[in-house]
Amino acid sequence: MSAVLTHFNYVAVIVLMMGGLYILLSTGNLVRRMIGLAIFQTSTGLFYISLGKVSGGTAAITLDAVSAEGQALAARAGAEQVARYGVEGVIYSNPLPHVLILTAIVVGVATLAVGLAIAVRLREAYGTIETDEIQALDRVLTAAGQVEPAP
């Protein structure tokens, strides 16, 4: 039971990640692929955040241990835990994964936009964003001598 409880987060995040991978691979539609990729990317972030969570901790914004919030947190976590893992009397979650993922999310949407822009241009050039149809069209055009064959 405890193994289920202690690793549930990791398993759930991996299920999300594989969901993204499946969406990515099971379709030829480029926009749908970008959606799958975005899910994959976000779930990686969720995994990092899961690793950085500390039981009984709070957000990594330092607060006074003697304030009401500090007292409430300490009461919830227990004196022994606070003494062992707290920083100046308060337990915080790990801020480092938060930093990494915060920037990754914004970079993620910027790169998503680049990918979608490529899909838009492909649609304008080929009239479709299904990879199969694009490849078929390429073959036809190459056979007709309208475009140079790919190197």
Binding site: I49, G52, K53, V54, I61, I101, I105
Partner: peptide, 8 residues
């Protein structure tokens, strides 16, 4: 938010 990652 539940994971204490308020900024994220």
């Amino acid at each position: 938010v539940v994971m204490d990652a308020a900024d994220v």
